[in-house]
Every structure is written in C-alpha cells, then in structure tokens.
C-alpha cells in the first residue's frame, strides 16, 4: 500500500509543478514505483514540464467519468520505467472532478504505486479541496517572499482542517547571497514563522529554466546545485537523514577552505 502525498503552496508560481516533477523523477530514479497526478484541471502543465505532452490520449476526467480504464490514462515516462503520469484535462474546469471521485482514484492508485504525488493547483477553492481529498500527507512549498510565506501559513491551516497534519516544508528559490546580505529571509526565519518540519531547500538555479525548456527534470543533472538539492530532498522524503548542503558557493566556510587549500 503506497502513500498519497499532495504538494501544495496556496500561492501560484512558487514551483509546485517543477517540484512534483523532480521529486517524482528522483523517487523513480531510486527504483520506486511512482504515479504523479496533475490535479490542476484546466491549466495542465505537469505533462509539458516532464516532456510527455505529445503522448496524452486520456486524462483524469476520462477516468472519473469512466470513459476509459485508469491504466489507459497513465503515461509511462520515457526515461524512468517506474514513473507514470495521470494528466489533467485541459478543456474542462475544476468542477469536472469531485472530492469523492478523487478519494476513489487515490485509493485505486495507492494499491499499485509506492508513491502517489498530487500536483495541487494554486488557490484554496475546489481545485485545492479535490487535490487534498485523497491525500494522507503533504508537502508545502514556499519561496522566501512575504506573499508566499503568508499563503503557505494559510494552506497549513487549511490542511489541518482537512485532517492532514504535520506538513513538510520545501523552501524553493533561495538565494544564499541575498540571505547573507540580509536582503532575503533565510531558512531559520521561515521555519520560525511557519513552525513546521523542513524537508528541503532548493537554491535559485538557472539550470532549472534550461532543463524545463527541454522537458527534463533537473534532478537528473549531476552537476547542478538544484539537482543535488532535489536528490537530497527525495532521500529525506524516504526517511533518510541527509545533512543540508552548503548552498553558499562563496560563503565564509568555502572561502576559508580555499585559503587553506592555497598553501
């Protein structure tokens, strides 16, 4: 029996879809059976981020309306055999699926997969309610901005109201240089405010734009900082204790090390 995890943030544009794609690809890369569910009906995007947009035949609403069998709608990733996607519908709206249908769907999926990861739409309306209906745990995503942190706090409250307790936090798009200069809230500041457990910190990285352009998850890129950060996050999600990496390329410790290495 697998686990159903919803990835949510409240605010849009903080990187939910990218995070879902990378966590999914990361878990599948470690040999786990993973199903990603795009719950953002009407604004389908997970397919294009994963580079699977040309292979969609059926979508989530075809499954809930019983136009097709669940297996027919699942798209297998070309790079990872164990990664499957249930795409959202693009021409319908959030009312096309009900929370009851989502619960049924999630129950069916977790029979088959070790991890079922749901990409939640932005907002707190029906789309959110649908996305969390079948989930038993959650990952809350934020960026170090006042608007995103405030929305994350609201979402944590709403998750509790839906009886999804102890969410795990991912801080995305952190810029270590700005944090060091006192111009961006740091990891401790955000944890202090939200009072939740930290799962991962992903640094701002141009490479995410480059890999997403090509429809490839950055988690597969062995050299990028964000790829490493996602690999660490995936291992923590599995329960491993992974220390947080030094995001600070020109940080104090790194500079000190350079000075000693020079000798």
């Amino acid at each position: 029996m697998g686990e159903v995890i919803v990835v949510t943030s409240g605010k849009g544009g903080v990187g939910k879809t990218t995070t879902v794609a990378n966590i999914g690809a990361g878990l599948a890369g470690l040999g786990h059976k993973v199903c990603l569910v795009d719950a953002d009906i009407g604004l389908r995007n997970l397919d294009v981020v994963l580079g699977l947009e040309n292979r969609i035949v059926y979508d989530i609403t075809d499954v809930t309306a019983e136009n097709c069998r669940l297996k027919q709608a699942l798209i297998r990733d070309k790079r990872f055999n164990e990664l499957l996607l249930l795409p959202a519908a693009q021409t319908k709206d959030k009312t096309a699926v009900s929370p009851e249908e989502m619960i049924k769907l999630c129950n069916e999926l977790k029979e088959e997969f070790e991890f079922v990861i749901i990409d939640c739409p932005a907002g707190i309306e029906l789309g959110f309610k649908n996305a969390v209906a079948g989930a038993e745990s959650s990952i809350v995503l934020t960026t170090p901005e006042v608007s995103a942190v405030r929305d994350a706090d609201r979402i944590i409250g709403l998750l509790e109201a839906s009886e999804i307790f102890s969410p795990q936090l991912i801080i995305n798009r952190l810029r270590p240089k700005m944090v060091r200069a006192g111009d961006m809230m740091g990891i401790e500041d955000i944890i202090d405010i939200l009072a939740v457990d930290l799962l991962g910190v992903i640094p701002e990285d141009d490479q995410i734009v480059v890999t997403t352009n090509k429809g490839e998850p950055v988690v597969r890129d062995p050299r990028s900082m964000s790829g490493q950060a996602f690999r660490n996050t995936v291992k923590r999600l599995k329960g491993e204790e992974i220390p947080y990496m030094d995001l600070d390329e020109s940080g104090f410790l790194t500079r000190l090390r350079k000075i000693f290495n020079r000798k």
Binding site: V146, V179, G182, M184, M185, D189, D192
Partner: peptide, 10 residues
C-alpha cells in the same frame, strides 16, 4: 535589514 523587516511584518 530588509529580511528582518519582512520577518517582522509577516
């Protein structure tokens, strides 16, 4: 610092 201002406002 602006990060402290952000934290306090939040």
């Amino acid at each position: 610092s602006s990060s402290n201002v952000a934290k306090e406002r939040l």
